[in-house]
């Protein structure tokens, strides 16, 4: 396994954990999450849940990983269609940029 793959696995695990936290607050548990899971169709999350997730990501990784800025460049349809893997891509890229 390469360093990048390891990092990607770690980021995915952390984001999945955050999502479980958000879902638990909504009374949902025991849900399967993989990189193809969509926030809207599969997890049935609303935009306000994405705000919570954004805040959790900001708390975890700080300034270099600004999900709110990333989402502000997207149209509503794109935000609704987001999948967990898209977020993992974004975090891994942002962390690599900050580290490089």
């Amino acid at each position: 396994m390469t360093t990048t793959e390891a990092s990607r696995d770690v980021v995915f695990a952390e984001i999945a954990g955050m999502l479980r936290t958000v879902l638990a607050e909504l009374g949902v548990d025991d849900v399967e999450i993989d990189e193809g899971t969509s926030f809207n169709e599969d997890l049935e999350l609303e935009s306000i849940d994405l705000v919570t997730l954004t805040a959790l990501i900001s708390e975890r990784w700080g300034e270099p990983v600004n999900l709110a800025e990333f989402l502000a460049d997207k149209d509503l349809d794109e935000v609704i269609a987001l999948k967990v893997g898209d977020l993992v891509d974004f975090v891994v890229t942002a962390l690599a940029r900050a580290g490089g």
């Binding site: 306000i48 705000v51 954004t54 600004n66 709110a68 989402l71 502000a72 935000v79």
Partner: peptide
């Protein structure tokens, strides 16, 4: 909800040097 602003304007406005408060 505040998401309408938070996910669209909030970050670019803060990046432009303006403090942001959004509430539900």
């Amino acid at each position: 909800s505040l998401a309408s602003f938070y996910l669209t304007l909030a970050a670019p406005v803060a990046a432009a040097g303006i403090n942001v408060l959004a509430y539900d």
